[in-house]
Nucleic acid binder design. Sequence first.
DNA 1: GTTGGAACGATTGTGCACATTATTTCGGCG
DNA 2: CGCCGAAATAATGTGCACAATCGTTCCAAC
Lengths: 244, 244
Amino acid sequence: MVRKKKAPPSALARDAAIHEAIAHAIMEGRLPAGSRLPEHRLADLFGVSRERIRKILHRLAAERRLELVPNRGARVPSPSLDDIHRVYEAHRLLEAGVLTQLVEMIDDKLLKLLDDHLAGERAAAERNDRAESVRLSGAFHVHLVDALGNPELSRFLRELLSRSSVMVSVYEPASQSICAVDEHGAIVEALRARDVTRAIHLSRHHFQHVEQRLRLEPPSDESGIDLDQVFQARAKPGKTLPKS
Amino acid sequence: MVRKKKAPPSALARDAAIHEAIAHAIMEGRLPAGSRLPEHRLADLFGVSRERIRKILHRLAAERRLELVPNRGARVPSPSLDDIHRVYEAHRLLEAGVLTQLVEMIDDKLLKLLDDHLAGERAAAERNDRAESVRLSGAFHVHLVDALGNPELSRFLRELLSRSSVMVSVYEPASQSICAVDEHGAIVEALRARDVTRAIHLSRHHFQHVEQRLRLEPPSDESGIDLDQVFQARAKPGKTLPKS
DNA sequence: GTTGGAACGATTGTGCACATTATTTCGGCG
DNA sequence: CGCCGAAATAATGTGCACAATCGTTCCAAC
């Protein structure tokens, strides 16, 4: 037993917390594309040294969640229409393989998980809770790939998802949700029927719809973002990292 | 207007060179699984500061090419049989999608590229050049995914490939090549005939064969590797590393 | 002879100070 | 009045020194 009553400030956990805070801020659209993330600013906000922030920014850049230009700092990437197409193409291609694998191992437990998730999505849509809708839309595809239990595939999909999340904030800042709940439900029904062909077909059209919807909105770029407000909920002043 | 002709002395290129040197050493099996990579050692070898090496190691760890344990440094990961299965499952799943997409856009130019590549593979096999055979075996799958022109997919496949390369050095240190040339040739023939089903079928069996072959060999772990010898061929040229 | 522990050596982690580079602003000139 | 340029400023990149931690070894006690 080791003593951790006072300060095992979880030197490593703090890094992970800051990393997730920034990643979530990007995923949830609180950090629009093009936002600059000065190291010194973040260091003050999170109450840690600049080198710590620097390491986290480099890690986020390696995960393609941030764009790191040599002497100009970190920015939230502004994906082009071509980038969007490639990300969705990769996602569609990956999900086709996932669905193929999934019909061979799907069980009632997974179907119930997906049904419950769809219920949550519908509830969020009815509440007009856009942030939650966007989050759940992505989580649906995460559930699909996680069901395979393959960390490689799960990690890749999460990477793609974090990139497409930024695109939503650029090209579709006002719309309700990015994935139509009905289309998700149709895929689940195809899975329930063990119909691979139909599931892949639905998935393919689903991504086409999403991509088409994005192309309708013009990109709106902002850069003057108040970082204090963005991270206010997570970076508590005073106490650096509360335990619980 | 900015002056971009000024000077790229090697500030950024040096990092990339060292990064590639280590990555290639892993890919080509010169660094067996479990090899330790002390920062100070690498810093002396490449003639750069330890902080530079540290940044590169962290980047390699983010790409899952190295394993970075908190206070114990960097090691070449020793994948388990489960890890192997997951990597090949991901690769198989990805390649099925790639082949599906590829038959819709394949042309004579790409077919010739693949034919030439197969000729190179056969030549290396006849020369009993194991290192080249392993390299070309991976390059075949790289050619397939690169033909789609999707950077997301290409990057993901390269990541998977760098992981499976380590597995080869662990589980099959003596055999000739990791991918049978004939199986690659059969996939190309299916592509030439625009037969998606057959191509996917061949690809699926191809990966199963590779994985089965790996399971035959027992893992052999070494850790006392002479880093000087490993990087002698790359770290010495004076163009990138002027310091003696 | 074995086992437990403490001290030592080696390696990684971190903060700080400084160099380098981009951006902005201000002043002079056309 | 507008434009160009240089200095000031701010942000990033880098090296160094020190602290923390892990593995090892040696010594003593049982």
